[in-house]
Design a protein around this nucleic acid. Structure first.
Length: 450
RNA sequence: GAGGAUGUAGCUCAGUAGGUUAGAGCGUCGGUUUGUGGUUCCGAAGGUCGUGGGUUCGAGACCCAUUUUCCUCCCCA
């Protein structure tokens, strides 16, 4: 009998961790709701046909596939089986897979429910996703995404709205971030001007790495990918320009490029009057891998600690198109809750309130006071105060230790004297202060300090 | 998917050139003569040394395989 364990890249969450995780989820949820987004959920597994081909070749490899039930080998592709060709075999033995993100299932949802949905449709979705990636720091095989998307509206108001949501959530979490913004059309314009429209993907992948490998590294990568020196010189000019207007000048001869610049300007006319707590920064090197983005793209990076992106999103014009619904534009953002957690943990940003779940712990010293404490607990709970007590009268020290481990904010000690006078001993576990108050006074105090 | 490092009590780690009953701190549990935790003092429990093979008279230490975690690459939240 071996020790029990869980699959690579997955984790258990204990009460303390979950309290902090929920603090993140609750904050995000609250802001989503405030902006008029409505929650939906989709199944853990989707048909493989829904998922494959949506995330590029690499993405397909990272999909978790679910083996068919029953005698799947009977129905398997016998050629693939004898050739031991796994890729070829998959389609005949797996017809379902675990969801890889929330956007594609959402697109599928929109198409399936198009007649029930009133457009523009604003939905949010907080659910786990799975990727068969090699786990690393900040990278798990099971992790949560918190998505907000708007479909059925072209207005760049929504881009501004979503960036404002990023700003609001991270302000509430007290996490300093940089929100990077770019536009795929601008990047396409660059490729066009450089004469390498057919190698658009190669170009974006390379320039995305600028801050990591430097200009020389980008050059090498571009040349390795078969892009000419001439084309690179144009790209170099673009990379060296810092502002929108500088790039705008370089894209004079590209219709699509100019369109992208226009979109960014429009986005700013919505966002700028609102103002943001965090820096919103135009970043021409921002590319984003998922190849369904077509307009503005966003990425969020934590300021005070190195970590991959903790959020990303953008505009996609054609997403529902692959499921047969044309002409529906969407724009969305995603929060990577697990990475946000890791960053907040290293920066110690979780407030005390996210860790103090138990507000009151009652201590009864003998049978009579324990019974009385149980009745007090009922009254506190009626008032919505999170209350607990020991299952039986026990030594005060033992009960205090337990209350401390449970991280209780207050302890009420009830002995014979307290029960008779009705003045209970209320101890603040934070500073150790203790005073005698009636249960009503205690209820007042606690409901008002929260 | 490619390459590299790693795995010893619940946690963080010691363990000297392979040699008797594998250690520490923290944590856990129990006491400290009975109404106060986080912050006295005393004591106890807890490990077939990731797993499976192999070399050896003998392996936690050496070899092989496998697995976990971490780090590059790829890509991303």
């Amino acid at each position: 009998m071996s020790k029990p364990s869980i699959p690579e890249g997955t984790r258990d969450f204990g009460p303390e961790v979950l309290a902090k995780r929920n603090y993140i989820f609750d904050t995000i949820k609250k802001v989503f709701l405030k902006y008029g987004f409505q929650p939906i959920e989709t199944p853990t597994m989707e048909k493989l046909s829904t998922l494959t081909g949506k995330y590029g070749e690499e993405g397909d490899k990272l999909l978790f596939k679910i083996l068919n039930n029953g005698d799947f080998l009977q129905k398997a592709n016998q050629d693939a089986l004898s050739e031991k060709n796994s890729t070829k075999l998959i389609s005949s033995i797996c017809e379902r897979g675990l969801r890889y993100d929330l956007t594609v299932p959402f697109a599928r949802y929109v198409v399936m429910h198009r007649n029930e949905i009133t457009f523009p449709f604003k939905r949010y979705q907080i659910q786990p996703v799975w990727r068969a990636d090699r786990p690393q720091k900040g990278r798990y095989r099971e992790f949560y995404q918190c998505d907000a998307d708007v479909v059925g509206a072209d207005s760049l108001m929504h881009e501004a709205e979503l960036v404002k949501i990023y700003d609001t959530v991270f302000s509430l979490l007290n996490l300093k971030v940089i929100i990077k913004v770019n536009n795929r059309k601008v990047l396409e314009g660059v490729a066009e001007v450089a004469g390498i429209s057919d190698q658009f993907m190669d170009m974006t992948i390379a320039i995305d790495k600028l801050d990591k490998i430097g200009l020389d590294g980008v050059k090498k990568e571009l040349l390795d990918r078969g892009i000419s020196e001439n084309a690179f010189e144009i790209i170099e000019k673009v990379l060296k320009s810092k502002t929108l207007s500088e790039i705008s000048a370089l894209l004079e001869n590209s219709e699509i490029g100019k369109k992208g610049i226009e979109e960014l300007k429009k986005f700013h006319t919505y966002l700028d009057p609102l103002g943001t707590d965090n820096e919103v920064q135009f970043d021409i090197t921002l590319a984003r891998g998922l190849n369904y983005y077509t307009g503005c793209i966003f990425e969020v990076a934590a300021k005070d600690t190195p970590m991959g992106s903790i959020g990303g999103g953008g505009r996609y014009d054609n997403l529902t198109g692959v499921f047969g619904l044309q002409g529906v534009s969407g724009v969305g953002i995603s929060f990577g809750a697990d990475r946000i957690y890791d960053v907040m943990e290293t920066l110690q940003l979780f407030p005390e309130s996210a860790q103090k779940q138990l507000q009151v712990f009652l201590v009864g010293l003998d049978d009579a006071t324990h019974l009385f404490a149980f009745q007090c607990a009922a009254k506190l709970r009626e008032k919505g105060i999170v209350t607990d007590l020991f299952p039986e009268p026990a030594k005060i020290k033992k009960q205090m230790e337990y209350a401390n481990k449970r991280n209780a904010a207050y302890v009420i000690v009830i002995g014979e004297e307290e029960m008779q006078t009705g003045k209970l001993s209320l101890k603040n576990m934070q500073n150790g202060n203790q005073e005698k108050l009636s249960l009503e006074e205690i209820i007042n105090l606690i409901t008002h300090t929260i």
